[in-house]
Computed example of a mutant assay.
Amino acid sequence: MSHRYTAGQMLELRSAPRLSNRPSGPCEVITCLPHERGPVLYRVKSLGENIERVVEEGDLAPSSATKTALAENETAFTIAISKR
């Protein structure tokens, strides 16, 4: 079975069926995880969070969401520079 979605694609993350703190809403596929058997897995990052999650393909759905200009320019680290 191959991956239906690709890295960089914006999708809709469905809410978790059991007790979980995983939010539903738009997310970006970070990478497609390798597998031989079992569910197809993806590493995704929700737009409202700074963490990445591993989710099954069944928890994802196509979305019309797009990354905002602010989110595209976001970096993991910021450096403050003072002028003297």
Rank of each mutant, 00 (worst) to 15 (best):
L19E: 15
C27L: 08
T31H: 03
V40A: 03
S63R: 07
G38N: 04
E56V: 01
S46I: 06
S64I: 06
F77S: 14
R14C: 04
Y42L: 02
T78C: 09
C27G: 08
T78S: 14
A16R: 06
Y42W: 06
L11S: 07
N21Y: 12
L60S: 14
E56H: 02
E57C: 01
G58F: 07
R43H: 10
Q9G: 06
A71E: 15
V40R: 01
H35K: 12
V44W: 02
Y42V: 03
A7I: 02
L33G: 07
A16H: 15
S2F: 00
L60W: 08
C27Y: 09
E36P: 00
E28L: 06
M10A: 11
S20Q: 07
K45T: 06
G58I: 13
S82R: 15
T6V: 10
T31L: 05
M1K: 03
L11E: 04
D59S: 15
N50W: 06
C32R: 07
V55K: 02
S20H: 06
A16E: 15
T78D: 12
R53W: 11
P39C: 03
I30H: 12
Q9E: 14
S63I: 04
L70H: 12
K45Y: 02
Q9L: 02
L60T: 13
R14W: 01
L13F: 04
G58H: 10
L13S: 09
D59N: 12
A76M: 07
L41R: 12
L13C: 10
C32D: 01
P23H: 07
K45P: 00
P26A: 14
S20F: 03
E56N: 11
E12C: 11
L33F: 02
M1I: 01
A71W: 13
A65R: 07
K83Q: 13
A16S: 15
T6E: 10
S2C: 02
R4P: 00
P39T: 04
T75F: 05
R43C: 12
V54Y: 04
C27K: 09
S82P: 01
I30T: 11
R84C: 10
E74W: 03
L60Q: 10
R14Q: 11
L13K: 14
T75M: 11
E57A: 06
S46V: 09
E56R: 03
A16F: 13
G25A: 07
K45S: 12
L47N: 10
E74L: 11
N50P: 00
L11T: 07
S24H: 07
T66L: 09
D59L: 11
Y5L: 00
E12K: 10
P17C: 04
I51A: 12
G8D: 05
G8E: 04
S64E: 14
A71R: 15
Q9K: 09
E57S: 05
E52D: 13
P34D: 09
S46C: 15
G38S: 09
C27S: 08
R84E: 14
L47W: 04
T68G: 15
E28A: 12
R22W: 06
A16M: 08
P39D: 09
P62H: 07
E72K: 15
H35Y: 05
R84D: 15
N73E: 10
E28C: 12
C27R: 06
G8Q: 05
C32F: 00
E72C: 13
A71L: 14
A76S: 14
E72I: 10
M1W: 00
L11Y: 08
E72G: 05
M10K: 02
V55S: 06
A7N: 03
E56I: 01
V55F: 03
L47V: 13
P23L: 05
